[in-house]
Measured scan of single mutants.
Amino acid sequence: TTIHVGDLTLKYDNPKKAYEIAKKLAKKYNLTVTIKNGKITVT
């Protein structure tokens, strides 16, 4: 599972963990989490 945050690309083997991290990042920086085709993007 890949999380895209701006220019950063973070890879995680565990999709659930990746989603949790994405949610935390989104909350911290007041951003939105988008999931599309298995890719998690924080914008």
Rank of each mutant, 00 (worst) to 15 (best):
Y19F: 12
A18W: 08
N30Y: 05
K11I: 15
K28F: 08
T34W: 04
I35A: 03
T34C: 09
K11D: 08
Y19H: 08
P15F: 15
H4K: 12
K27S: 10
K16G: 09
K24N: 07
T34M: 10
T1A: 12
K24E: 11
K24W: 15
K24T: 09
T34H: 11
K23R: 11
L10F: 11
Y29V: 01
N37F: 11
T2F: 08
V42W: 05
Y12C: 10
I21C: 07
P15H: 09
V33G: 00
K28S: 02
T9K: 08
I3N: 03
N14R: 02
A22Y: 05
A26R: 03
I35R: 03
I35C: 12
D7Q: 14
D7G: 15
K17L: 15
T9A: 09
Y12P: 02
T34N: 08
T9L: 14
V42Y: 03
L8G: 02
A26W: 05
L31Q: 02
A18F: 07
T32R: 08
Y12T: 05
D7V: 10
V33Y: 01
H4W: 10
P15K: 07
G6R: 02
I3T: 03
L8S: 04
K36F: 11
K17V: 13
K23S: 08
V42E: 01
L31H: 02
K24A: 13
G38I: 03
P15E: 10
N37S: 09
K28Q: 07
V42F: 13
T34Y: 09
E20D: 09
A26S: 05
T2A: 07
N30I: 02
V42M: 15
V5Q: 02
T34P: 00
K11N: 12
I35T: 05
L31R: 01
T9Q: 12
K23H: 12
E20V: 07
I35H: 04
K28I: 08
T9D: 06
K36D: 13
D13T: 08
V33R: 00
K39N: 13
K36V: 15
Y29L: 06
P15W: 15
T1K: 03
T2K: 04
A22V: 08
Y19M: 15
L8M: 09
T34G: 04
I40E: 02
V5D: 03
T43N: 07
K23E: 12
T2H: 08
T32F: 07
K36N: 13
I35W: 06
T41R: 04
I21Y: 11
T2C: 12
E20Y: 13
I40H: 02
T9S: 08
G38M: 02
K11V: 15
A18E: 01
T1R: 01
K16S: 10
I40A: 01
V5I: 15
N30T: 03
I40Y: 04
Y12R: 01
T1N: 09
T2M: 09
K17A: 09
T9M: 12
L25H: 01
G6T: 06
N14P: 03
G6E: 04
A22R: 00
Y12K: 02
A26K: 03
Y12W: 05
G6H: 09
L8E: 03
T32A: 10
Y19A: 07
V5N: 04
T43M: 12
I3A: 03
T9N: 07
L31S: 03
T43F: 10
K27A: 14
K36C: 06
Y29K: 03
K28R: 10
K24Q: 12
Y19R: 06
K28T: 05
Y12I: 11
I21E: 08
K39Y: 14
L8D: 03
T1H: 10
K11L: 13
K11A: 10
T32K: 11
A22I: 10
K11G: 04
I21Q: 06
A18M: 05
L10V: 07
N14D: 14
N37W: 09
T34V: 14
K17S: 08
V33K: 00
T2G: 05
A18R: 01
T43D: 06
K24H: 12
T32Q: 11
G6C: 11
N30Q: 08
I35V: 14
N37V: 06
K16M: 11
T2N: 06
I35Q: 03
G6F: 13
K27V: 09
A26P: 00
Y19V: 09
I3C: 13
L25C: 04
L25D: 00
T32L: 09
K27H: 10
K16W: 14
K17T: 13
A22E: 00
V33M: 11
K17N: 05
L8P: 03
K36W: 08
D13W: 11
T41C: 07
K16E: 12
G6L: 12
G6N: 05
A18I: 06
A26C: 13
K17P: 01
L10N: 03
N30A: 07
N14C: 05
L31M: 14
G38N: 10
I40D: 01
K24S: 09
Y19G: 02
T2L: 10
V42H: 01
A22M: 07
T1I: 15
I3F: 02
A18P: 01
A26E: 03
N14Q: 05
K17C: 08
L8T: 05
T34E: 10
L31E: 01
K27Q: 12
D7R: 13
T43V: 11
Y12H: 03
T43Q: 11
V5E: 02
N37R: 04
T41F: 15
N37I: 08
T43A: 13
K39S: 14
V33Q: 00
K39D: 13
P15Y: 15
K16L: 13
I3E: 02
I40P: 01
D13M: 08
K27T: 09
L10P: 02
L8K: 08
Y12M: 06
T34K: 10
K27C: 06
N14W: 10
T34L: 10
A26G: 04
I40W: 04
A18T: 02
L31P: 00
A18Q: 02
I3K: 01
L31D: 00
I35K: 03
N37C: 10
G38P: 00
G38D: 09
L8N: 03
K11Y: 15
N30V: 02
E20R: 11
N37L: 08
I35G: 01
I3D: 02
A22W: 10
V33P: 00
D7P: 10
Y19Q: 07
T32N: 09
L31Y: 05
L25Q: 01
I21D: 05
K24R: 13
T32E: 07
K24G: 07
Y29M: 04
T41W: 15
I3L: 12
A18H: 01
T9V: 15
G6K: 03
L10M: 06
T41A: 06
L10E: 04
K16D: 12
K23G: 04
K16P: 03
I21F: 13
T34S: 11
K39F: 14
L31W: 08
T1G: 10
K23P: 00
T41S: 09
V33D: 00
H4N: 08
V33W: 02
I35E: 04
T43Y: 12
G38C: 04
T32S: 11
D7Y: 10
K27E: 14
V42Q: 01
L25N: 00
I21V: 13
V42K: 00
A22N: 00
K28C: 09
Y19E: 07
T34F: 11
I35S: 03
T2Q: 07
H4I: 14
Y29A: 02
L10G: 03
N14K: 04
E20H: 10
N37D: 15
L10Q: 04
K27W: 07
G38S: 05
L8C: 12
T2E: 11
V33N: 00
E20G: 05
A26L: 06
I3S: 03
T2P: 06
G38Y: 04
T32D: 04
G6A: 06
G38K: 02
T41I: 15
N30W: 05
K17D: 09
T1P: 06
D7S: 15
K39P: 03
T2I: 12
K27Y: 09
K16N: 09
Y12E: 03
A18G: 02
K36Q: 14
T43G: 14
K28P: 00
V42S: 00
V5A: 04
H4T: 15
K39E: 15
K24Y: 15
H4V: 14
D13Q: 08
E20Q: 12
A26V: 04
K39W: 13
N37E: 12
V5H: 05
T9Y: 08
T43R: 09
K11W: 15
K39V: 15
K39A: 14
I35M: 08
I40L: 07
A18N: 02
A22T: 02
D7W: 12
T43E: 12
A26F: 05
K23D: 07
H4F: 10
K17Y: 12
N30C: 07
T9P: 04
T41K: 05
D7C: 14
Y19L: 15
E20F: 11
K17G: 03
N30S: 07
T1Q: 07
N37P: 11
K16A: 13
T1Y: 11
K17W: 11
G38A: 02
N30P: 01
K23W: 12
H4D: 06
A18K: 01
L25R: 00
K36R: 13
P15S: 08
Y19S: 06
G38R: 01
